[in-house]
Nucleic acid binder design. Structure first.
Length: 270
DNA sequence: ACTGGCACCTGGGCGC
DNA sequence: TGCGCCCAGGTGCCAG
């Protein structure tokens, strides 16, 4: 589920419910995530007040008074607030019980996500080498151009590389390349600066729009008010292999790049 | 230093 | 209905 817009939507949804709340208890029903959930998580976090909830790339940072809970949702994870005593589902692995009586519940069928504890989260091995945030000024077409010189990798996996820019997952990489008119198979090093300027603008525009719309697929992460999300109808190419291009009417094609499905229009993208 | 490939894990959808 | 196969929004790690 989660690409950057979904993670940011989650952050915005849970933050008001967590800020200034004290953690009463942490219940780990299944700690077998990508990395084992720390055994002492309950001891570390209980009694502490959550100061803020930030995001770095696709990590959520739940900042407590002393230390930070790092949460990654992987491919299938979600965080939502439920009432204390809510029925526990098969994949509801972790509960963070709050003084408000609400529970922040972590659900993750595939268990590709992670939950880690750090005193210095931005220095953590997993976060330290990350590239700039896509919506910040530190990311632009000049950076894409500079980093891509002499690179033979296809442009699509290049822009999905977290060292280049974070938060560009398969859906938005696919859509941004379509919007910029660039064939995803092109060698990163063979693309002009002008086209990278356009591509960076499209990445920013599409991510911002998706965040504005509440992500592509997330719904009712807080309470029961189902959010429509970034409607599937807004997608031009992702998931539309064999269908017709919305711009030119030609049939969309799919190739594998970096083991990921990559749909593109052979007529609009070069 | 790069690149491509594999791995982690469960569930849903498809064809037979 | 059931079974086997393929696919899935992420990303760290490995060998070449």
């Amino acid at each position: 589920m989660p690409e950057l817009p979904e993670v940011e939507t989650t952050r915005r949804g849970i933050e008001p419910h967590l800020r200034k709340q004290q953690v009463v208890r942490v219940v780990v029903r299944d700690g077998r995530l990508r990395w084992p959930v720390p055994e002492d998580l309950d001891i570390r976090l209980s009694g502490q007040t959550i100061v803020s909830v930030e995001r770095r790339a696709k990590y959520l940072l739940l900042n407590a008074e002393v230390g930070t809970l790092l949460v990654h949702l992987g491919m299938s994870g979600s965080l939502r607030l439920v009432e204390a005593g809510s029925a526990v589902g098969k994949h509801d692995h972790i509960d963070i019980e709050l003084s408000s009586g609400h529970v922040l519940r972590y659900t993750d069928p595939r268990r590709f996500g992670s939950m880690l504890w750090s005193q210095t989260p931005l220095e953590h091995t997993l976060l330290k080498k990350l590239g700039p945030e896509p919506l910040s000024d530190a990311f632009d077409g000049q950076r894409l151009f500079d980093l891509s010189r002499k690179r033979s990798i296809a442009v699509k996996p290049f822009i999905m590389d977290n060292a280049v820019v974070v938060g560009v997952g398969n859906i938005y990489a696919t859509e941004a390349l379509f919007a910029a008119g660039i064939d995803p198979r092109r060698e990163a090093g063979s693309i002009s600066k002008a086209r990278y300027l356009k591509l960076a603008d499209e990445i920013k525009r599409i991510l911002a729009k998706a965040i504005e719309s509440g992500g592509t697929t997330l719904r009712d992460f807080v309470g029961g008010d189902g959010k429509p999300g970034y409607f599937k109808q807004e997608l031009f190419v992702y998931g539309r292999e064999g269908e017709l291009c919305k711009l030119c009417g030609k049939t969309l094609r799919e190739v594998k790049l970096g083991q990921r499905a990559s749909v593109f229009c052979p007529n609009c993208q070069h």
